[in-house]
């Protein structure tokens, strides 16, 4: 089995708070690995260190065997790591299609190209349309992103991450704030992605996690207290006590 991502003894603190406290984790190619844990456990902080938005205090991050611990975020994206945000992060004043087309453009060579109108470059637009169709936003393409509903924003957030073509997708609570029906649709969608991409999924929705994950890690106070298959995690007494809230 080849490791796509390896995290060794990662540490990050904010003043007095230790948000990441010696995390070790590896992801194999094609796996969907879920991270669960209570609020403030350090899940977002972990993702931010993987995407390059935050610098770890100590530890090593290897991607495809190469050390990326000190690489800036934009370079990691070029290597094939993308993330979605817990709080939707889009270019709100641009159209839905433009948002996705920018993501496609990002993996289509450098963008120091000044002459040809970007909106007339058919392979960018077509690929963006495809991705929008995939997440069910095709009929929203021309709207400014700001005019979408919350559920649609979450879908667009995933579409943008997907459109980069990145091998490794770090998804930070893609179902946050979604109602039952939207949530079910997102789960189906992520199921469809399984195997195609390697996914690190953070999610509070336990139904989603147990339905999707190949492996689950439980993060509490910045530490991973257990890693295993969904069944193993369900049966782990420590996890049930610390997180699933059962005595």
């Amino acid at each position: 089995m080849s490791m796509l991502l390896e995290i060794r003894d990662l540490k990050k603190g904010f003043g007095g708070v230790t948000a990441t406290d010696g995390v070790n984790l590896s992801l194999t190619q094609g796996e969907l690995h879920a991270i669960i844990g209570p609020n403030g456990a350090g899940k977002t902080t972990l993702i931010s260190q993987l995407s390059g938005a935050l610098r770890p205090d100590a530890g090593v991050i290897l991607f495809k065997g190469g050390d990326i611990t000190r690489r800036p975020a934009h370079k990691r994206a070029r290597l094939g790591i993308t993330r979605s945000f817990q709080i939707t992060s889009l270019v709100m004043e641009m159209s839905v299609l433009d948002n996705v087309a920018l993501a496609v453009q990002a993996c289509d060579g450098h963008s120091f190209r000044f002459v040809k109108p970007a909106r007339k470059i058919s392979h960018l637009r077509e690929r963006a349309q495809e991705v929008l169709a995939q997440v069910g936003l095709a009929d929203r393409a021309a709207l400014p992103a700001v005019e979408l509903s919350h559920g649609e924003h979450r879908q667009l957030e995933i579409a943008v991450a997907l459109a980069t073509g990145a091998e490794l997708m770090l998804l930070d609570e893609p179902m946050a704030g979604l109602g039952g029906e939207d949530s079910a649709r997102m789960i189906d969608f992520l199921k469809g992605l399984k195997g195609e991409r390697t996914i690190l999924l953070i999610e509070h929705d336990m139904d989603a996690v147990f339905a999707l994950a190949d492996r689950i890690s439980v993060l509490v106070y910045g530490r991973i207290i257990a890693t295993g298959s969904p069944d193993e995690i369900r049966g782990n007494a420590e996890v049930r006590h610390a997180y699933l809230g059962e005595e």
């Binding site: 994206a77 993996c107 963008s111």
Partner: peptide, 23 residues
């Protein structure tokens, strides 16, 4: 209106997003 311009305008709207995309 070029690719460059889309990046420039995108970064005005949401710099973090554009960096995360690889720009």
């Amino acid at each position: 209106n070029s690719r460059f311009g889309m990046v420039l305008r995108g970064a005005k709207g949401n710099d973090e997003r554009l960096v995360t995309l690889g720009f």
